[in-house]
Design a protein around this nucleic acid. Structure first.
Lengths: 219, 219
DNA sequence: TCGTCACCGATTTTCGAAAATCTTGACCTT
DNA sequence: AAGGTCAAGATTTTCGAAAATCGGTGACGA
């Protein structure tokens, strides 16, 4: 069992926040978090500090922590920034990636496609298996870019955008064919068509964002 | 005085690490850090957690924290990534920046030029006044890009690259005319020539990096 | 009536020590 | 001599309580 207590607290809280268990804007009180995680204040505090760095939580001195709100303008920022930054990373991956990268890519999409998202009365469930593979696929896309720093930034952007996506997931009607979008990106990448791949990736993000925008503004 | 204890610990340690007071690769022991910061373990630990997020410190579970090493390959990564990312941010700033941005830019360069770097027997001193204004100038360059997320990333990249620059500062011979490079970037930005500005910024980074590479590999 | 200020409970932040874990090196076995 | 075991010391990690701070309430005086 590898992991400190603060590591588990971090996992628990990140997951809870991403899944909306602690809703956007909610105050995070230590007493509650300690009971929620089953540990004392120190590891909880460390986890929160890391979540602040990841942008999922905000802190105001002596006034505690709260879940970062979901704001349309930030979503727009995320989509634009991701399209650019991950576009570069994808371009470099296409330029530098070898046959192992291709194999990993094909593999990760296969795994994603053969674990269908479960649904319940029209709404998608938060299926952690699907989420893990989805994250893995997007990570693999840019994994051969040769820049650890850029890669790390892509992961941060993913997890920040992920909150928005999961928020709208419960309402999504399923009219989109996400799987087809993924496959199209893969095909362009394997064909070494960087411009097409970048464009498809950006469209993929934008399509997701426009969904979310509708749901966010409805409230 | 606004600031928690962990905030001051963060400032103290960040400054000490950037200035090489704790050399790259050095173990950071809590007892020493507590005495160094004049406070107990909790705020020190929180500061370290934040420094890990910033990439200045690394942590291995149950084996403590250590200052991130300076590695040429990471320097290369930083230069490439900064050129790309800050180049884009600069381009957007040039596109979106209004007259207030221009004014802030002229102002920050003026302040930088009129606080000459102090020298002592050929080597540059770590002059925090100069450093603050230098940081401010580079921040202002990209400040009008309209993307808080990108801006935040630029700051992270700056502080990471800063460690390398300061490391080589003590040995630099002063053969470069850094002030002229800054002014050239400013002129291109004011002339709204994004491509030229991006190129000059990238050259600025690369010139700094090639200095550092020499000093790093000498050891 | 309004504003000021001191006090109270709630909450965050920090402390100092206990618990858990790692490292070192002596000692024993093979 | 090489390798393994185990206790002692050093170090990190976590705990539980103390200290500091915040927000609100109500008494008091102008």
């Amino acid at each position: 069992m590898t992991g400190s207590r603060s590591e588990t607290a971090w996992r628990i809280l990140q997951s809870a926040i991403i899944n909306g268990e602690f809703p956007p804007g909610a105050q995070l009180r230590f007493q509650e978090l300690q009971e929620f995680c089953g540990m004392s204040v120190s590891p909880v505090r460390e986890a929160l500090t890391r979540l602040v760095a990841a942008g999922l939580v905000e802190v105001e001195h002596n006034r505690g922590y709260r879940v970062t709100k979901l704001v349309v303008s930030e979503l727009d920022d995320l989509v634009r920034t991701r399209s650019r930054v991950e576009g570069w990373a994808l371009e470099e991956s296409i330029r530098l990636g070898d046959e192992h990268w291709e194999a990993a890519l094909i593999s990760s999409l296969h795994l994603l496609e053969h674990l269908p998202r479960r649904r319940e009365n029209g709404a998608n469930l938060h299926d952690e298996h699907w989420e893990a593979r989805h994250s893995e696929f997007h990570d693999t896309l840019v994994s051969a870019c040769g820049s650890p720093i850029l890669l790390e930034f892509c992961r941060t952007l993913y997890s920040r955008a992920d909150r928005y996506r999961r928020f709208s997931l419960s309402m999504e009607t399923g009219s989109r064919d996400v799987a087809a979008e993924h496959r199209a990106i893969l095909d362009a990448a394997l064909a070494r068509d960087a411009d097409k791949a970048k464009g498809l990736l950006a469209a993929h993000y934008e399509a997701t964002a426009s969904f979310i925008r509708d749901h966010l503004s409805e409230e």
